[in-house]
Design a protein around this nucleic acid. Sequence first.
DNA 1: ATGGTGACCTGACCGC
DNA 2: TGCGGTCAGGTCACCA
Length: 274
Amino acid sequence: MPELPEVETTRLGLMPILGSSVLQLAVIQPRLRQLVPETLRSIIGEQLNTLSRRGKYLLLGTNKGTALIHLGMSGSLRLTATHEPYRKHDHVSLILSNDYSLRFHDPRRFGLFLWLEDEPLQHPLLSSLGPEPLTEQFTPEHLFSLSRKKKSPVKSFIMDGHIVVGVGNIYANEALFYAGIHPLTPANQLLLTDYQRLHQHICRILSIAIERGGTTLRDFVNSKGNPGYFQQELMVYGREAKNCLICQHVLELVRVNNRSTIYCPQCQPAFRSF
DNA sequence: ATGGTGACCTGACCGC
DNA sequence: TGCGGTCAGGTCACCA
């Protein structure tokens, strides 16, 4: 489910929990990619001081440690009234001092809910991540220089969290379309000017998607249970066999790293040999 | 080192 | 109505 804009939307909606304390912890269903109920108990009694984001990870900070949360493909965090019954696939509930509960819900269980006592950014899951796309650490030159030895498709390249974080399947498709780059182009065949366009559109699309509250295709909801609206502006994702909104050519589908990839053969020509 | 594939899960949808 | 197949917003371990 969530790419960077959806995680950021979730984070912004949860800011009201800051300053409250965790009265109780309920681990309803611990089976996730990673969740250790025993260590998580350390959060009980702690005040929630900070809520930050690194890539698609959320970091809920206290004086004693940090809860590291990833929503996987289908996860969501919601603020509910404490007396509200659990829903199927609720995994964790933090009962807060302000009469609300923070519920972690994840049907596919690819998410993660961990307690870290050490510096969270040093954790192996975070320490090798690439730059945040909406910071000055992320530049066209960064993409260009890291791509010189990469023969893999440019779409895989920009979706690799070690290159840049937060660009998932939807926004990779969209950015490549706007940049006029065929998704299968080997990353090392693109020029600096190509990466300048790609960089510009990655930043622009992610920013707009955050403004729209993210993209809801099936089940993304923000912390209040409401959908996002960026899906109304998608140019290629989910539009296989429909007409390109720019040139009317039929959009085509190809699988890149087992992920559906939609592109316009006319706007994103395969002009180099591959 | 790099790149491709399968694995992890459940639910929705489609065709028969 | 039910069954089997396919697909889904992410990431990682494992191979060649």
